[in-house]
Design a protein around this nucleic acid. Structure first.
Length: 147
DNA sequence: AAAGGGTGCAACCGCGCCCCA
DNA sequence: CTGGGGCGCGGTTGCACCCTT
């Protein structure tokens, strides 16, 4: 019945994670490794679905996360890579050890999104069109080379 | 001091891809 | 070959915490 933030819906908990939930998830990964997220609930009793578990681990609990302020150096990389690839956050994240796609996405949106509203907006749109064309051509190449 | 507005981040959702029975 | 589960990605939301008025 109750579907409000932080409580149970369809048997799954949602909303912010508690310290106890974090402990259960960390314990699970220690024992079974990353992945197989849908078995977390079955094996630990944690009332979270697989998606929620994966997200929590990848974006928050992973021990190799850097945390804290984005450095000027990292910021430069983000700007460069975003100029090249657009919103391909996971691709950008691979060049920034210890940072997640979610973190980078949040950072860029809060710090640079508004600056593209005006003069850069048109540039942004044309870059997007170019990207789509490239994607299309790559798809063509893939499908022709497979046959 | 209290209300209103803005901001940042954690977490959600839908979509689409891949893999396997 | 195909239907469904598992997962990754990108966009979006909602809440807590500012800062202003």
């Amino acid at each position: 019945m109750e579907s409000s933030w932080g409580f149970i819906e369809d048997g799954w908990r949602k909303g912010p994670w508690t310290a106890d939930e974090d402990r259960l998830l960390i314990e699970y990964v220690k024992l079974h490794g990353e992945g197989r997220w849908n078995s977390v609930a079955r094996l630990t009793g944690l009332r979270r679905n697989g998606k929620s578990c994966r997200l929590r681990w990848v974006n928050y609990l992973r021990p190799d996360l850097k945390r804290g302020q984005i450095t000027p150096h990292e910021e430069r990389i983000i700007l460069e890579l975003h100029a090249r690839w657009g919103n391909r956050w996971s691709t950008i994240a691979r060049s920034l050890p210890g940072r997640t796609d979610n973190e980078i996405k949040n950072y860029w949106r809060t710090h640079f999104k508004k600056k593209t509203k005006n003069s850069c907006d048109n540039f942004e749109k044309s870059r997007a069109r170019l990207w789509k064309r490239q994607q299309f051509q790559q798809q063509q190449q893939k499908s022709t080379s497979k046959r």
